[in-house]
Write a protein that binds this DNA or RNA. Sequence first.
RNA 1: GGCCCGGUGGUCAAGAGGCCUAAGACACCGCCCUUUCACGGCGGUAACACGAGUUCGAAUCUCGUCCGGGUCACCA
Length: 550
Amino acid sequence: MNNNEKMAELLLPSIDKTPDYYENLYPARELKEGARVTRIAPSPTGYLHLGTLFAALVNRITATSSGGIFYTRIEDTDKKREIEGGIADIIDGLGRFGITIDEGFTGADEQYGNYGPYKQSQRAEIYQTYVKELIRQGLAYPCFCTAEELDKVRKIQEDRKIRTGYHGEWAKHRNITFEEAKKLIDEGKTYVVRLKSPGSEENTVVFDDCIKGKIEMPENDEDFVILKSDGIPTYHFAHAVDDHLMRTTHVLRGDEWISSVPKHIQLFKLLGFKPPKYGHIAPIMKLDGGAKRKISKRKDPEAAVHFFAEEGYDSQSVIEYLMTVAASDFEDWRKANPDKSYKDFKFNLKKMSVSGALFDSDKLNNVSKTVVSSFDSACVYDKLTKWAKEFDPEFCAVLTENPEYTRAVLSIDRDVPKPRKDIAKWNEAKDYFSYFFDSLYKKDFSLPENVSSADAKLFLQKYKEVYDPSDDRQLWFDKIKAIAPEIGFASETKEYKAEPDKFKGHAGDLSTVLRIAVTGRRNTPDLCSIMRVLGKERCISRIDDALNSL
RNA sequence: GGCCCGGUGGUCAAGAGGCCUAAGACACCGCCCUUUCACGGCGGUAACACGAGUUCGAAUCUCGUCCGGGUCACCA
């Protein structure tokens, strides 16, 4: 045994497998030419974040459109930051947004597939096998520096204004001998394993990013940590081993990773792996004061995807919005294919924005109105009551008290060829539909400026006499038109516009009076339909109420 | 500070040396349609960060300046 081999045995005595074992265990995937294998590798340190959802979407659609595989892997190598229920929240969250998972974690405790386990804490032995091999080849070594020592070194480097980090002559244990290591271990000292980087800052590494294009950076010369003192690898090392063994073809991740690519490429090379294609996704930004910054879990409510559920955005709306952010040509496609699933869109990573886009809630609302307008009333009933049940139980009780009635309310101007685009999120619904429910109804009889209270009363009086709930839309309005001239209003808007001085207003103003009397507001969907749903009794009583109050 | 990346209307963006007198979408404004509102249709305000250079010609290529973002852990 040479010294490297002795070192390997000293540090990882219990590892008895070799990389070959795993290479055979996880053979190349049999997929058709061009199929892309992608993944999302969240760490369960918090709840599902907008950025994670966005990355998942991009990975998902990249796999889908190439006939490939999209899988999930849990990166739980940092036990200190892990939170309870984190995995479930992330995986279930993706499910709620319709992101299907082909392989890997499909639930908090469920994993599926031939390339597992898909949780890094269950893969310690695999990583250690590869670390052992690196040590054997003299490409990794133990480092016994404490955090304090490392701090001190960095201070010195800062003072001397030289590049900080554990590299070159600053790599204290780079050439540690077997005997020295053994002595320190026998003394009970803890250590990490570092890569013995053969790189030099003088060299440049070039890679072609699927999203950002060609990027050049200095080669990595830092002896970064690959195995932490607890025997668990760092992200960098786990990424190389996992994405190789799981046969990932495209690593599409947040662009905060871009600066570590030289490390990763070096690792792949040293381990004898073929590097995947990288694509670095620009973050979704937010305006804070005057400054643009990455949307943050801690500061921004909309960073946690849960926020959208609370607001009552349909998951489709959020996905649709995210697609417009992901692909600059998506909106044109959508216009041409209004009824297709976004999954049929030919997604091209090259069309992705290179720099971060500001989160635009106006745009989200606009997109969402279109999405919601495509739902029929039965669908809206289900979605709305489901939302209300969780976030506004009182409203839910009101909605479900008489389901047939609520369905009729929801179908107004909806189950028609050109449905209204008026609701973006369910938390707007309570106010929007309030006048249909006596317990929520708030009367407000403020009249338009050109209608006197006397004329309004006169009109309502006359209208009551001819009101018939069975009238169709045409007849309904004809009756209002018929009354108009009797109180000095024009029957036709054109008439009024032609000679405004001859009239007090037009029939439209009178319909507004009726609208105010019946619904307490000036703007509503089609009043005739509303009155029909409201029923004669309620309409008459509200008109009477208005008559008394005006 | 070092290293990366990026700067086109308020926002998202098309744009690959002449097709740019710079698309489209959201927001905003006006008009039309109209029982109100919304939808829809038509129109409008509004942008190539700055300075040099290359070129017959630059939003597009080069350099510099400025500004913004990311990253420099036993975190991912």
